[in-house]
Amino acid sequence: MKNKLVLVVDDDPDFNNLIKHVLGKFGLIVEAFTDGASFLKRLDSSAPALCIIDLNLGTVKEGFELIQSIRTRKPSGPGGLPLFIASSTVDHETIAHALEIGADDYILKPIRREVIASKLLNYVKSAELEDVSLNSITLSEGEFPVTMELELEDLEVDEFGIKVKSRHLITKGTPISLTGAFFVEVTGSERPKLVTVTTTWVEVDLSGYGAYLEFELADEKLLQAVRNWLITKLK
């Protein structure tokens, strides 16, 4: 990890100095910029181990454009460039969107030193693991499909969908099969229901992510069962 390069761009020099100070203690070399253009120029001529950008550098739209500019230069993914967004004022749906268009993770301001150390360093270490994973066998596309099953908590139900909380971020637009106590109670069946993720956000307490899962609109039976359930519950 020593001597690995970190690039940060934020118009707040105090934030830049804090990042330099904390990451510097771990032997990382931090170069800080206050505008996107100089940051991108340096990115073009270097191979950083991590980048941190202020999502509010200009407008949020410019923040998204900066993420996309970075990604056209340096890909994401295993062996790619980890990209963090730092933010203080944007809403949590905006953060989730930034994660979906190219950022890998986020830190909220005012930032705590231990967050910088643990969260940021984890990504730098992860990239190192990729470098030393020499005994992996790469499979061809479609060779090994799996179904992944994870848990979440139900927060609210309305007639068109269900709001949930999860430790995991589910990409917007993803169709998933959902099962649980709520559906068993509503439909009397354990058969999974197909839902689509239409909105995602970072939970206010940073404990995970929220998502709104929309029921299949063609499933009139389910929609009717949910309405009947709501009438009973909200009497």
Binding site: N135, L139, L152, D154, L178
Partner: peptide
Amino acid sequence: ELPRSSFSVGAEVTKVLD
């Protein structure tokens, strides 16, 4: 009393690691 649900989604194994 938040009810728990589980969801499943299609994925792919791209590498077999150590």
